[in-house]
Amino acid sequence: MIARIWHGRTKAKDFEQYTELMKSIAIPDYERTKGFVNLTFLRRIDNGIAHFTLITYWENLDVIKNFAGDDFEVAKYYPEDKKFLLEFEEKVTHYEVFAG
């Protein structure tokens, strides 16, 4: 299994609204992808900035390529992200899950 990890930041005032956006758009998109296993969505506020970390779990790298494209390390964004995110991190990280 492979874990794909993304990080994003918004203003603290957008904390709840961005959370709801991710619940309604991003999570269903992941769940519709064949080979998707599960996800963990983390959030916190630190010094007026909301941090979001999304860890998705996939059967293998080929499945991730079906979701993200051949350049699977490039982060996937949604049009609605432009309203909230403070920057767009270019890459995500991947880890092989060996216990869990």
Rank of each mutant, 00 (worst) to 15 (best):
I64H: 00
P28I: 04
E31K: 15
K82M: 11
F15N: 04
L61C: 05
E31G: 12
H7P: 01
E73S: 12
M22R: 05
M1K: 06
H7S: 06
D29F: 08
I55V: 15
Y78G: 11
R9F: 07
I5Q: 03
F52R: 01
F52S: 01
T56A: 13
F67E: 06
L86W: 06
K82F: 14
H94M: 04
F52N: 01
T53F: 05
H94S: 04
G69P: 15
K76R: 12
Y30G: 07
K11F: 09
F67H: 09
K82S: 09
D71L: 15
D29Y: 09
I5K: 00
D71H: 04
W58G: 14
E31C: 14
V97Q: 03
A68R: 01
T40I: 15
M22G: 08
L21R: 01
M22Q: 10
A50K: 03
T53N: 04
D62Q: 07
Y57G: 05
N60C: 13
V63Q: 03
N38Y: 01
D14C: 06
T19G: 09
A3P: 10
I2A: 01
Q17D: 12
R4H: 08
K65T: 08
T33Q: 13
L54C: 07
H51W: 09
V92R: 03
E96I: 05
G69T: 02
D81A: 03
H51I: 03
G8R: 05
Y78S: 13
N38E: 06
I45C: 13
K65Y: 09
T10S: 13
W58E: 03
T93Q: 10
P79Y: 05
E89H: 11
V63G: 01
D62A: 10
W6E: 12
D62H: 04
I64F: 10
A26F: 13
T33A: 15
N47R: 14
M22K: 02
P28N: 02
E73C: 12
K11P: 06
H7Q: 13
I45F: 12
V37N: 08
I5F: 01
V63K: 11
F72K: 00
E59M: 11
A3N: 07
I49H: 08
I55H: 08
E20P: 00
R4G: 10
A26R: 02
K82T: 02
Y30N: 06
A12H: 08
E20T: 02
M1I: 12
E90V: 00
E20D: 10
A50Y: 08
M1F: 12
F41P: 02
Y30I: 07
W6Q: 12
W6K: 05
I2D: 01
W6M: 10
F88I: 00
N60Q: 08
M22D: 00
